[in-house]
Design a protein around this nucleic acid. Sequence first.
DNA 1: AAAGCGTGGAG
DNA 2: TCTCCAAGCTT
Length: 257
Amino acid sequence: MVSEFMLQQTPVSRVLQPWQQWIERWPTPTALAEAPSGEAVRAWGRLGYPRRALRLHRAATAIRDDHDGHVPDDYAALRALPGVGDYTAAAIASFAFGQRHIVLDTNVRRVQTRIALGVEFPHTSATAAERVLAEDFLPSRAERAAAWAVASMELGALVCTARTPDCDVCPVRTECSWHRAGRPSWDGPPRVGQRYHGTDRQCRGALLSVLRSADAPVAEDELLVAWPDQRQAERARDTLLADGLMIMDADGCSLPR
DNA sequence: AAAGCGTGGAG
DNA sequence: TCTCCAAGCTT
Protein backbone atom coordinates (compact mmCIF):
# COMPACT_ATOMS: atom_id res chain seq x y z
CA MET A 1 0.00 0.00 0.00
CA VAL A 2 2.86 2.36 0.82
CA SER A 3 4.58 1.62 -2.46
CA GLU A 4 1.36 2.10 -4.43
CA PHE A 5 0.88 5.55 -2.90
CA MET A 6 4.47 6.48 -3.65
CA LEU A 7 4.22 5.16 -7.19
CA GLN A 8 1.25 7.34 -8.06
CA GLN A 9 2.99 9.48 -10.69
CA THR A 10 6.51 8.89 -9.39
CA PRO A 11 8.98 6.54 -11.17
CA VAL A 12 10.05 3.32 -9.46
CA SER A 13 13.72 4.29 -9.32
CA ARG A 14 12.95 7.33 -7.20
CA VAL A 15 10.64 5.44 -4.86
CA LEU A 16 12.95 2.58 -3.84
CA GLN A 17 15.00 4.31 -1.18
CA PRO A 18 12.29 6.41 0.49
CA TRP A 19 10.07 3.33 0.56
CA GLN A 20 12.73 1.28 2.35
CA GLN A 21 13.23 3.94 5.02
CA TRP A 22 9.51 4.48 5.40
CA ILE A 23 8.83 0.78 5.99
CA GLU A 24 11.61 0.51 8.53
CA ARG A 25 10.31 3.50 10.42
CA TRP A 26 6.61 2.67 10.18
CA PRO A 27 6.21 -1.08 9.62
CA THR A 28 2.47 -1.04 10.31
CA PRO A 29 -0.50 1.25 9.63
CA THR A 30 -0.85 1.88 13.36
CA ALA A 31 2.78 2.93 13.69
CA LEU A 32 2.26 5.50 10.96
CA ALA A 33 -1.05 6.66 12.40
CA GLU A 34 0.66 7.37 15.70
CA ALA A 35 3.23 9.71 14.16
CA PRO A 36 2.44 13.37 13.48
CA SER A 37 1.23 13.88 9.90
CA GLY A 38 4.06 16.36 9.40
CA GLU A 39 6.58 13.59 9.94
CA ALA A 40 4.97 11.69 7.08
CA VAL A 41 5.35 14.78 4.91
CA ARG A 42 8.99 15.11 5.93
CA ALA A 43 9.73 11.44 5.24
CA TRP A 44 8.03 11.84 1.87
CA GLY A 45 11.05 13.88 0.88
CA ARG A 46 11.17 14.92 -2.76
CA LEU A 47 8.84 12.29 -4.16
CA GLY A 48 6.48 15.03 -5.24
CA TYR A 49 2.75 15.60 -4.72
CA PRO A 50 3.16 15.67 -0.91
CA ARG A 51 -0.59 15.60 -0.37
CA ARG A 52 -0.17 11.89 -1.00
CA ALA A 53 1.80 11.64 2.26
CA LEU A 54 -1.05 13.30 4.09
CA ARG A 55 -3.59 10.97 2.51
CA LEU A 56 -1.48 7.92 3.34
CA HIS A 57 -1.32 9.09 6.94
CA ARG A 58 -5.08 9.60 7.03
CA ALA A 59 -5.60 6.17 5.46
CA ALA A 60 -3.39 4.64 8.15
CA THR A 61 -5.49 6.36 10.80
CA ALA A 62 -8.68 4.99 9.27
CA ILE A 63 -7.17 1.50 9.12
CA ARG A 64 -6.21 1.70 12.78
CA ASP A 65 -9.61 3.01 13.82
CA ASP A 66 -11.96 1.12 11.52
CA HIS A 67 -10.11 -2.00 10.38
CA ASP A 68 -8.39 -3.24 13.51
CA GLY A 69 -5.04 -2.06 12.22
CA HIS A 70 -5.08 -4.35 9.17
CA VAL A 71 -5.15 -3.20 5.56
CA PRO A 72 -8.57 -4.37 4.32
CA ASP A 73 -8.66 -6.98 1.56
CA ASP A 74 -12.03 -5.78 0.29
CA TYR A 75 -12.04 -3.58 -2.81
CA ALA A 76 -14.85 -1.31 -1.61
CA ALA A 77 -13.21 -0.83 1.78
CA LEU A 78 -9.90 -0.01 0.13
CA ARG A 79 -11.54 2.35 -2.35
CA ALA A 80 -13.11 4.25 0.56
CA LEU A 81 -9.72 5.12 2.06
CA PRO A 82 -8.33 8.59 1.39
CA GLY A 83 -5.95 8.68 -1.55
CA VAL A 84 -7.14 5.31 -2.85
CA GLY A 85 -8.76 5.51 -6.29
CA ASP A 86 -9.84 2.79 -8.71
CA TYR A 87 -6.31 1.90 -9.68
CA THR A 88 -4.81 1.75 -6.19
CA ALA A 89 -7.70 -0.25 -4.72
CA ALA A 90 -7.47 -2.78 -7.53
CA ALA A 91 -3.68 -2.94 -7.31
CA ILE A 92 -3.69 -3.70 -3.58
CA ALA A 93 -6.52 -6.23 -3.86
CA SER A 94 -4.78 -7.93 -6.76
CA PHE A 95 -1.08 -7.77 -5.84
CA ALA A 96 -1.40 -8.19 -2.09
CA PHE A 97 -4.47 -10.42 -1.86
CA GLY A 98 -4.49 -12.29 -5.17
CA GLN A 99 -7.96 -11.20 -6.17
CA ARG A 100 -9.36 -10.72 -9.67
CA HIS A 101 -9.61 -7.04 -10.54
CA ILE A 102 -9.10 -4.78 -13.54
CA VAL A 103 -5.82 -3.05 -12.72
CA LEU A 104 -5.86 -0.23 -15.23
CA ASP A 105 -2.88 2.04 -14.92
CA THR A 106 -1.14 4.07 -17.59
CA ASN A 107 1.06 1.10 -18.57
CA VAL A 108 -1.78 -1.34 -19.03
CA ARG A 109 -3.82 1.25 -20.90
CA ARG A 110 -0.97 1.78 -23.35
CA VAL A 111 -0.30 -1.96 -23.75
CA GLN A 112 -3.88 -2.93 -24.48
CA THR A 113 -4.46 0.08 -26.72
CA ARG A 114 -1.53 -0.97 -28.87
CA ILE A 115 -2.31 -4.69 -28.91
CA ALA A 116 -6.03 -4.50 -29.51
CA LEU A 117 -6.63 -1.15 -31.17
CA GLY A 118 -3.41 -0.67 -33.10
CA VAL A 119 -3.07 2.84 -31.72
CA GLU A 120 0.10 4.19 -30.15
CA PHE A 121 -1.43 6.00 -27.18
CA PRO A 122 -4.67 5.78 -25.21
CA HIS A 123 -6.79 8.89 -24.81
CA THR A 124 -6.28 11.25 -21.89
CA SER A 125 -8.80 9.74 -19.52
CA ALA A 126 -9.79 6.09 -19.18
CA THR A 127 -13.05 5.41 -20.98
CA ALA A 128 -15.71 2.80 -20.30
CA ALA A 129 -14.65 1.10 -23.52
CA GLU A 130 -11.17 0.65 -22.11
CA ARG A 131 -12.55 -1.08 -19.05
CA VAL A 132 -14.53 -3.44 -21.26
CA LEU A 133 -11.37 -4.20 -23.18
CA ALA A 134 -9.46 -4.76 -19.94
CA GLU A 135 -12.18 -7.14 -18.76
CA ASP A 136 -11.83 -9.10 -22.02
CA PHE A 137 -8.10 -9.51 -21.43
CA LEU A 138 -8.48 -10.50 -17.77
CA PRO A 139 -8.35 -14.26 -17.09
CA SER A 140 -11.33 -15.61 -15.17
CA ARG A 141 -9.42 -17.42 -12.43
CA ALA A 142 -8.28 -15.07 -9.67
CA GLU A 143 -4.76 -16.46 -9.57
CA ARG A 144 -4.27 -16.03 -13.31
CA ALA A 145 -5.89 -12.60 -13.24
CA ALA A 146 -3.49 -11.39 -10.57
CA ALA A 147 -0.56 -12.71 -12.60
CA TRP A 148 -1.89 -10.96 -15.69
CA ALA A 149 -2.20 -7.68 -13.80
CA VAL A 150 1.46 -7.76 -12.79
CA ALA A 151 2.60 -9.01 -16.18
CA SER A 152 0.75 -6.45 -18.27
CA MET A 153 1.99 -3.63 -16.08
CA GLU A 154 5.57 -4.82 -16.27
CA LEU A 155 5.32 -5.22 -20.02
CA GLY A 156 4.24 -1.61 -20.30
CA ALA A 157 6.85 -0.35 -17.84
CA LEU A 158 9.84 -2.22 -19.27
CA VAL A 159 9.12 -3.10 -22.91
CA CYS A 160 6.05 -1.41 -24.32
CA THR A 161 7.16 2.01 -23.12
CA ALA A 162 5.76 5.34 -24.19
CA ARG A 163 8.76 6.76 -26.03
CA THR A 164 10.90 3.89 -27.24
CA PRO A 165 9.11 0.54 -27.13
CA ASP A 166 11.41 -2.44 -27.58
CA CYS A 167 9.21 -4.54 -29.83
CA ASP A 168 12.10 -6.87 -30.65
CA VAL A 169 11.89 -8.49 -27.23
CA CYS A 170 8.11 -8.24 -26.82
CA PRO A 171 6.51 -11.63 -26.13
CA VAL A 172 3.24 -10.61 -27.81
CA ARG A 173 4.79 -8.82 -30.76
CA THR A 174 3.09 -11.10 -33.30
CA GLU A 175 -0.31 -10.53 -31.74
CA CYS A 176 -0.01 -6.76 -31.53
CA SER A 177 -2.16 -4.73 -33.93
CA TRP A 178 0.06 -1.69 -33.60
CA HIS A 179 3.23 -3.61 -34.40
CA ARG A 180 1.59 -5.44 -37.32
CA ALA A 181 0.40 -2.12 -38.71
CA GLY A 182 3.98 -0.85 -38.77
CA ARG A 183 3.78 1.12 -35.53
CA PRO A 184 1.88 4.11 -36.91
CA SER A 185 2.57 7.26 -34.93
CA TRP A 186 -0.08 9.05 -32.91
CA ASP A 187 -2.34 11.16 -35.10
CA GLY A 188 -4.91 12.17 -32.51
CA PRO A 189 -5.18 15.59 -30.89
CA PRO A 190 -1.84 16.92 -29.56
CA ARG A 191 -1.52 15.93 -25.92
CA VAL A 192 -1.06 18.87 -23.62
CA GLY A 193 1.86 18.72 -21.23
CA GLN A 194 1.77 20.35 -17.83
CA ARG A 195 3.92 23.39 -17.23
CA TYR A 196 5.91 23.46 -14.03
CA HIS A 197 8.51 26.20 -14.06
CA GLY A 198 7.19 29.30 -12.34
CA THR A 199 3.86 27.72 -11.40
CA ASP A 200 2.17 27.68 -8.02
CA ARG A 201 3.18 24.04 -7.79
CA GLN A 202 6.84 24.90 -8.00
CA CYS A 203 6.33 27.70 -5.50
CA ARG A 204 4.58 25.40 -3.04
CA GLY A 205 7.43 22.95 -3.46
CA ALA A 206 9.98 25.64 -2.66
CA LEU A 207 8.20 26.68 0.54
CA LEU A 208 7.62 23.12 1.66
CA SER A 209 11.26 22.29 1.05
CA VAL A 210 12.20 24.92 3.63
CA LEU A 211 9.83 23.43 6.20
CA ARG A 212 11.03 19.89 5.53
CA SER A 213 14.63 20.73 6.28
CA ALA A 214 13.88 22.94 9.29
CA ASP A 215 14.03 21.33 12.73
CA ALA A 216 12.24 24.27 14.35
CA PRO A 217 9.42 26.62 13.33
CA VAL A 218 10.39 29.12 10.65
CA ALA A 219 9.43 32.79 10.78
CA GLU A 220 6.87 33.65 8.11
CA ASP A 221 9.12 36.24 6.46
CA GLU A 222 11.92 33.73 6.32
CA LEU A 223 9.62 31.25 4.62
CA LEU A 224 8.30 33.68 2.03
CA VAL A 225 11.74 34.77 0.85
CA ALA A 226 12.26 31.25 -0.45
CA TRP A 227 10.34 32.46 -3.52
CA PRO A 228 11.01 35.65 -5.49
CA ASP A 229 7.37 36.59 -6.17
CA GLN A 230 5.85 37.57 -2.79
CA ARG A 231 2.26 37.59 -3.96
CA GLN A 232 2.65 34.10 -5.34
CA ALA A 233 4.45 32.95 -2.18
CA GLU A 234 1.58 34.21 -0.04
CA ARG A 235 -0.90 32.37 -2.20
CA ALA A 236 1.17 29.19 -1.88
CA ARG A 237 1.34 29.65 1.89
CA ASP A 238 -2.44 29.89 2.02
CA THR A 239 -3.04 26.77 -0.04
CA LEU A 240 -0.44 24.81 1.93
CA LEU A 241 -2.27 25.82 5.10
CA ALA A 242 -5.61 24.89 3.59
CA ASP A 243 -4.25 21.50 2.50
CA GLY A 244 -2.88 20.79 5.97
CA LEU A 245 0.67 20.57 4.68
CA MET A 246 1.82 23.30 7.07
CA ILE A 247 0.69 25.07 10.20
CA MET A 248 1.28 28.61 11.38
CA ASP A 249 1.15 29.75 14.99
CA ALA A 250 2.92 32.13 17.38
CA ASP A 251 6.18 30.18 16.98
CA GLY A 252 6.10 30.48 13.20
CA CYS A 253 5.55 28.09 10.31
CA SER A 254 6.17 24.36 10.42
CA LEU A 255 5.02 20.99 9.23
CA PRO A 256 1.89 19.84 11.08
CA ARG A 257 2.57 18.37 14.53
C1' DA B 1 -14.91 16.96 -16.11
C1' DA B 2 -11.06 19.60 -16.60
C1' DA B 3 -7.63 21.39 -13.92
C1' DG B 4 -4.49 21.33 -10.12
C1' DC B 5 -1.15 18.95 -7.72
C1' DG B 6 5.98 17.98 -7.48
C1' DT B 7 9.98 16.36 -9.05
C1' DG B 8 13.82 14.68 -11.67
C1' DG B 9 15.63 11.82 -15.46
C1' DA B 10 15.95 10.76 -20.34
C1' DG B 11 16.10 11.89 -25.05
C1' DT C 1 18.14 23.90 -23.22
C1' DC C 2 13.48 22.10 -23.45
C1' DT C 3 9.94 18.78 -23.84
C1' DC C 4 7.97 14.71 -22.35
C1' DC C 5 6.73 11.67 -19.04
C1' DA C 6 6.30 8.44 -14.43
C1' DA C 7 2.36 2.17 -11.02
C1' DG C 8 -3.32 8.83 -10.07
C1' DC C 9 -6.36 11.22 -6.93
C1' DT C 10 -9.40 14.93 -5.76
C1' DT C 11 -12.48 18.63 -6.44
